[in-house]
Design a binder for these strands. Sequence first.
DNA 1: CTGAAAGCGCTAACAA
DNA 2: TTGTTAGCGCTTTCAG
Lengths: 340, 340
Amino acid sequence: MPEKLDDVARLAGVSAATVSRALRGVPGVADRTRSRVLAAAAELGYAISPAASSLATGRTGTVGVIVPYVDRWYFSRIISGVERVLRDAGISLLLYNLGDNPGRARFFAGLPLRRRVDAVLVLSLPLTEVERELLLGLDAPLVTIGTEELGADSVGIDDHGAAATAMRHLVQLGHREIAFIGERDPIPLGFTTPLRRLAAYREVYHQVCREDGREPEAAFETAGGFTVAGGERAMSGLLGLPRRPTAVFAASDEMAFGALRTLRRAGLRVPEDVSVLGFDNHDLADLLELSTVAQPVAELGERAGRLLLARLSGGKIATSPAILGTRLVLRGSTAPRSPR
Amino acid sequence: MPEKLDDVARLAGVSAATVSRALRGVPGVADRTRSRVLAAAAELGYAISPAASSLATGRTGTVGVIVPYVDRWYFSRIISGVERVLRDAGISLLLYNLGDNPGRARFFAGLPLRRRVDAVLVLSLPLTEVERELLLGLDAPLVTIGTEELGADSVGIDDHGAAATAMRHLVQLGHREIAFIGERDPIPLGFTTPLRRLAAYREVYHQVCREDGREPEAAFETAGGFTVAGGERAMSGLLGLPRRPTAVFAASDEMAFGALRTLRRAGLRVPEDVSVLGFDNHDLADLLELSTVAQPVAELGERAGRLLLARLSGGKIATSPAILGTRLVLRGSTAPRSPR
DNA sequence: CTGAAAGCGCTAACAA
DNA sequence: TTGTTAGCGCTTTCAG
């Protein structure tokens, strides 16, 4: 394993420089020489030292991926997607999980990926101005998923539009009292996705209220922390309200799952008593008969991966955000509002 | 950003060697000197070049994690666990997803982590002898989760014991016709975990059959591919059998979820008509009222992470596998066998 | 098309 | 305690 370039050079009867050129496939090496070198390298089981190469070239063959969570469905799917395309291109993936706010602060203070990566991908994490500058200061291409940042390519979905479509579906079913389970300020890691979905909820719900000539119920906007447990709690709160919603729109399937559970425990039927609509099309949404907004999660990752590769090879690419499509998936958890 | 050690040295009025020592916190630097260096480094926003450092020391500050999947609950949880402890120790995590068998072959052929990592963690992936030698040839400490390999530290659970306990629970409930949903040869990526659970199933089930003086039903051993869809299919097959099981033990919760779904669609009640028992204690098992065997997934990852750190700092540690505890979690999907 | 030589930025002896 | 001097293994001019 401690083979070096010179060993290969000696065996092939050429200079180290030629071996380097041959191994990297750069033009300007005679075919015969190249194959001789390749044979020698294979014979020795030679593999290049990334550190030395990186020191000499400044490139690392590695991309840094910054995530707020790795063990949530949405994030693990995306990571899987980018990993696949990077791997196919021979790029390694360095994973950085922020963890929590102190962890995030530590990350940006230490910036452990500095000089370790050729490009950076940030998942669903709106950056502060300082953070963005720090990342751009790495002078490596920056790509984001789910957010848009100055100086970065981005891929995402139309959160607002998708959420509005979902809400309109509920309205068409006759629902007027619609609650929202999502997230409000202060937002854990600064996510804006929930806010965009909340905004769409509000627009549609408030419009309905205007039509009905009544005040929107502020307590219908609840926080579920994007977890099953949070969704459960939020739904419990809603059930305690004097005026109960007949439909609930959750900003993630996990929270919708929690809502389903609370409803079942409370002896309420879905969708007869309450309609529930989620967001994501989680693997288990189908199993739980949850109507939801499907977003192409793995594809977001792949798309971002390809963007990274394009930037790495210096490709001049469209800088406008790539917006992937979503679609409403109707299952058994939504139905026309039943007369009270 | 293009600061180098010498810049710091100049500013602090010392030599590069001293800066190097001070920055790494090695002993043998006067306190005053050290703080002067630190101040200079901070002023310049200096950060070490990992490539250069790595070239000089042979260490990379990075651990490679090899996984068969990243977007499955079990794996993403484990990754999250190791990542947390490595991060706290300032170690970066290079993620390698094998993908499929060709991907696996490519990985071991190219061995992209060669010279990129100081240690390697392998998740639930029994290695061929060749693969093991390749990995050990990296001469970096090797740790595995869920398998045991010569020359590697390992952490895992007692699959066989846990599965046997689960099976005995079903027997105690009066079940005699118990089916298994898991995996049989040929195994996708060579997993042995399913086999250990299968073996436990067989022991208990065959014992029951002996007691009853009848032949075990071979068709009760089904393959579910560790996915929800696979579990659904397996359960469908079981329902088509002339002699139907009254209880089903699935080697993973995901497969159990699929089984639940098939049963519900077939109009059968759980647990009245069929008991279902899973394995993992997936986040959603609670929601679906699934009885299951809980294993400390995140802790497996953390434990492995700590093992890696210990090996990296040259600690001589117990080489025997660390076995973490499991426990049966009884929910609503298992009940005494009802008279037919 | 190929080789020689000079780094890339840091660390590790060895001296002082 | 600090500085000097060689590398670590590869890439990249620049000659040839």
